[in-house]
């Protein structure tokens, strides 16, 4: 209400200063006329219709004194470097209003997010066909872990885990084809359990004497194997655990 009245008051003052008669202005806003009338009267009286200029003689004397002092001012010749610094500070000052800073923060944040997004997509694409010991293999595994942690439906999560395990098995095939050594990890059914040799998912695994297997594992159990595939294609287990 006050804001509205303040605006009406100001518009009325502007109209009156433009020469619109007082009664005509009040007739435009009859609801506010009683409140406006004394304020506009006050505004009328307060306005100096013919402001008197300063006496010419006095003005000339004051100007002469001023000019005299101006001529005594030391000259300023800013060094080019100082001028540049000043210009830079000026630009910075102009840019450091609250609005400009906020705008900059938003722009920078959006740019960073978009850049990270594009980088992540590119790395993910490049890492898709890597196998263990490749440079970008870690990216592939991180991407899978993120995908799993963002999947909340248990069925879909189980499907993904199975899909990723298939990838692990395919990776082992590729490593064997290329006779490459790498740390591997996969899950599968324990088909045969010998003293030092187990067969899991068609892969023969050598168990060194110092391996510790905490779980009671029998043939037919699903196990997770972490170990080293040597370049001679011998798979040496490091850890074997029961998948519950």
């Amino acid at each position: 209400m006050t804001d509205r009245f303040e605006s009406i008051l100001d518009e009325s003052i502007s109209a009156w200063q433009a020469g619109v008669p007082l009664e005509e202005i009040l007739a435009e806003v009859p609801d506010y006329a009683d409140e406006l009338r004394p304020l506009l009267y006050a505004a009328t009286v307060l306005t100096d219709p013919n402001p008197v200029p300063a006496p010419a003689e006095k003005k000339a004397a004051l100007r002469a004194e001023y000019i005299k002092q101006v001529t005594e001012l030391p000259a300023i010749t800013p060094a080019p470097f100082r001028g540049k610094v000043r210009a830079i500070i000026k630009v910075i000052k102009r840019r450091t209003t609250r609005e400009a800073v906020l705008k900059d923060i938003i722009t920078v944040t959006i740019t960073i997010i978009l850049t990270l997004f594009v980088v992540a997509l590119t790395l993910n694409y490049l890492a898709a066909n890597t196998i263990p010991s490749d440079f970008l293999y870690g990216v592939k595994r991180i991407s899978e872990d993120i995908q799993l942690s963002l999947t909340f439906d248990p069925e879909r999560k189980a499907e993904l885990e199975e899909e990723f395990n298939q990838r692990r098995l395919e990776e082992i095939e590729k490593l064997i084809e290329q006779n490459r050594a790498a740390v591997i990890q996969f899950k599968g059914i324990l088909e045969t359990k010998g003293e030092n040799l187990w067969i899991v998912e068609d892969h023969t695994i050598f168990l060194p004497n110092d391996i510790s297997i905490e779980d009671e594992i029998v043939e037919g159990d699903v196990v997770e194997v972490i170990g080293l595939l040597r370049s001679n294609n011998v798979l040496v287990a490091d850890t074997i655990r029961l998948v519950r």
Binding site: E6, L9, D10, I13, P38, L39
Partner: peptide, 19 residues
């Protein structure tokens, strides 16, 4: 605007009732 309003209102209170 608010300063102007308060000032004019205060001045108007000093105007004679007839006005």
């Amino acid at each position: 605007k608010a300063l102007q309003h308060r000032a004019l209102a205060s001045l108007a209170r000093h105007m004679p009732q007839e006005v």
